[in-house]
């Protein structure tokens, strides 16, 4: 099998890799935002509940969650598709990490920002949405890009629940060809080719949405 054929084979899995990533983001972004903000704003028992949910998704092994949700939930009468389970498990796991970045970004802001908003008579929600979150999210954007890259790479696990992503295709080819070195080397390169543009995109976004930092350089 020529290198070109190996590449074409792996490429057939690209669509699934991309879809799991995208659907994963559909879970990760709202979860990270809502739970990060909730952990920042709540105290007492409410905070304990929020923290418990985050810790469940953040501290469980993704591969085991995939198996449990894919193979065990049907026993309880809830059969989710492999794609749904994969997107949810990978998305909420990364979302758990992202929530901590959101919370850290909010906590790192100078207390004076909130106080200035209060002194102007702004409501708590306006202070959060107009003053705190915009600054926290910009400050944390490199972390979010990191997590997006981690999500892309984590999708290689979905081959274990029958989805034919790039890793699944590589395994298939390798089982037919008995020549793992060029095949897995190609796979390695394939993930790099997907992830590196994400990193470049991240740097571009950072430059675009950070007029303040640019301004500091200009002075």
């Amino acid at each position: 099998m020529s290198i070109l054929e190996i590449w074409l084979g792996i490429l057939q899995g690209f669509r699934v890799t991309a879809l799991v990533t995208l659907y994963g983001l559909v879970f990760a972004i709202p979860f990270g935002l809502v739970f990060g903000v909730a952990q920042y704003m709540t105290t007492g028992p409410a905070r304990f509940v929020v923290t418990s949910v985050i810790e469940f998704w953040r501290s469980s092994a993704v591969i085991i969650l995939l198996f449990v949700f894919y193979y065990a939930l049907p026993l309880a009468g809830l059969a989710l598709s492999a794609m749904t389970v994969s997107a949810m498990v990978l998305g909420l796991n990364i979302g758990g990490y992202a929530s901590q970045a959101v919370r850290a970004g909010l906590q790192a802001l100078d207390r004076g920002q909130k106080e200035a908003g209060q002194a102007l008579g702004l409501s708590r929600s306006t202070i959060l949405l107009r003053i705190e979150l915009p600054q926290a999210l910009v400050a944390m954007s490199p972390t979010f890009i990191n997590q997006l890259i981690q999500l892309v790479k984590a999708t290689s696990l979905v081959s274990l629940v029958t989805l034919s992503d790039m890793t699944f295709r590589a395994k298939e080819i390798s089982q037919i060809e008995y020549d793992p070195v060029p095949i897995y080397s190609s796979l390695l390169l394939a993930y790099f080719i997907v992830c590196y543009p994400v990193a470049l995109f991240g740097r571009w976004v950072e430059r675009r949405i950070n007029p303040v930092r640019e301004a500091r350089c200009a002075v």
Partner: peptide
């Protein structure tokens, strides 16, 4: 009805000078 000026200014760094001034007018 009370305005406050802080030692460290506490301007909103992500907003222009004009938006710093208009934020409360518009949202409050």
């Amino acid at each position: 009805q009370t305005g406050m000026v802080f030692q460290n200014f506490n301007l909103f760094p992500h907003l222009t000078v004009l938006s710093n001034c208009t934020l409360a007018l518009r949202r409050v």
